Computed example of a mutant assay.
Amino acid sequence: IGAIGQPHILVRTIALRSPDDVPAARKVYFAWYLPFALLTVTISLYARVLLTGELSDPELTLPTMAQAYLPDVLAGMVLAAIFAATLSTADSMLLSCSAAIS
């Protein structure tokens, strides 16, 4: 259900060699997805408590927390990671779409 809006993830599942590989792919996917989802929810709850009343735009939560609670070098790495994740997702979407068209 979580991969419906993410065709770049669905392409990896479609590219399996045989249907027998699906259980192994499912285990790997959920082994990475579940800890990531739990950490995401945990960080958002911490942000809700720590940044009460400070944010006008919720999309700035992660950079604001990084600036407030991390050294400058690590805050820069968080910002770089946000941009890298955005570009990676856009790149994967473009590759998936171009593969589907061709």
Rank of each mutant, 00 (worst) to 15 (best):
G2E: 15
I4E: 15
G5T: 12
H8C: 15
H8N: 13
H8Q: 14
V11E: 09
T13E: 11
T13N: 07
L16Q: 07
L16R: 06
S18W: 01
D21S: 07
D21Y: 06
V22C: 04
V22W: 13
P23I: 05
A24P: 06
A24Q: 09
A25Q: 06
R26G: 07
V28N: 11
V28S: 10
F30Y: 15
A31C: 13
A31P: 12
W32G: 14
W32I: 12
P35R: 02
F36W: 15
A37I: 14
A37E: 15
L38H: 12
T40G: 12
I43G: 04
S44I: 13
A47F: 02
A47T: 04
R48F: 12
R48A: 15
V49A: 12
V49P: 01
L50T: 01
L50R: 08
T52K: 14
G53T: 03
G53I: 04
P58A: 09
P58N: 07
E59Y: 03
L60R: 10
T61G: 02
P63D: 00
A66I: 01
Q67A: 14
Q67Y: 05
D72Y: 05
L74S: 09
M77R: 06
V78A: 02
L79M: 09
I82W: 00
I82T: 05
F83R: 07
F83T: 09
A84F: 00
A84W: 00
T89C: 03
T89M: 04
A90W: 06
A90K: 03
A90R: 03
S92P: 01
M93F: 11
M93T: 07
L94Y: 09
S96Q: 00
C97T: 09
S98D: 07
A99R: 03
I101K: 03
I101C: 02
S102Y: 10
S102E: 11
